[in-house]
Write a protein that binds this DNA or RNA. Sequence first.
DNA 1: TGCATTGCATGAAAA
DNA 2: TTTTTCATGCAATGC
Length: 442
Amino acid sequence: MENSYMPFSPTTTTTANTTLRLPNKGWSQNSGFCIYEPMNSKNFSSTPSSTPSNSQFHHPSQLVAPYQSLQLPHRQPTEQAGHSLAYLVYPFFLGQNGIEFGESSSIQASNGVQGSCFIQTDGLSEEQERRILDPYITKVARIRRKQARQRSLGLQRSASSGASIQVEERRLTSSGADTDVNNNNDTKRDLYMFCTPDNKRLRMLLKKELKNSDVGSLGRIVLPKKEAEVNLPTLSDKEGILVMIKDVYSNQMWTLKYKFWSNNKSRMYVLENTGDFVKQNGLEIGDSLTLYEDESKNLYFFILKVERFAAEASNNQHCDNVNNNNHMYLPFTCQSRDEEETSIELLIEQLKHKEQQEPNDFMTLPMDAAYSGRLPKEARHFLSDTFSSRETYSQITATTLQTSSTSIRGKARSVDDIQINFDDGYGGLDMLPDVSLYNFSL
DNA sequence: TGCATTGCATGAAAA
DNA sequence: TTTTTCATGCAATGC
């Protein structure tokens, strides 16, 4: 007897073609999800399917040229009145006090759509201003960031540390601004730190850097045991179960078999029938496969082709709007406290006048310094409109860009843009970046 | 017989 | 040094 774990409804299998949809009109919330739906093994196939929708969300390979072979996290550009393009990256990383669109009346989604990941760029409201200045809020935000950072680093949350944070929050909330119940709800909710284009919250289950045997002809991907046992459905027998996994930013759905082999007194966990999955997604050694689940236990996957990203970026191909949050190019960074005090303005000046300036040079500095009032007006305006708290983002990165499509022997002919990334610092190097971009010409 | 698939065994690497 | 994990080799099996 074969079990399956497929919260996604398998009833809608039409075409494997990636469809396009608006971010605010994502997968149907009521598309007949069923949990642990039995599946006839004879009818099983790993053929991808996609949920039918009138979606117009752009697969990155269809949206922006640089992603045609990169399959980086998707960035949805949005025209903002009076500003440059801003980009959001999916799966979007959710800051605890940060990108909570639709939750704050002071932050309206653009296009008149509540709950979208797009942001209005009008001036600060009084409410926003109050929140920015409210030290209590920023303190809570700091604590929550600490929690998120610990989780994101993959640390097992010990009972003691968890308790201490709770105590600290309780102490803060004794004024009545919050309750233990809310804390618990928040803690549970905080596990879901990413967001799909249609605003489903995701939590990361496991990440696998693909090896030769994973992308070879065997059609199976070995999964890390610890994460599999903790985060994936428990397997009672060797038969395994069928799982339906959806691409984070396309509608493509795959049905794979999740099972284990006995290995001495232990187990090896594998995904099987991955041949077509690997082939169609063009997976190669070094690419990473990350599994997520949403709050309804639907499974999602995300592919990051790190090696090719590094290779292409280092060849200065299509550097526009490529973020470097993987910190692959780090010619220099702020080292001393004095340097950290450097304003964003000075940082940009240093980049501009750096000898032999090349694309992907970048510097970083803490958000506090960036927010010291010397931030360029446009960038500050953008920040204010985007984030409800100055504490939300802790680091700023300025990166030079090659904006000219012309290059000589792989080197940029000119570097005429600086891209500023606002990095919340939650994710460390291994997590998908939470990034918003602000570009302006030198 | 040959090829593909399955799952156990082995050993290197990491903890 | 020992234990555990995991990449992969390879024999058994099925078609």
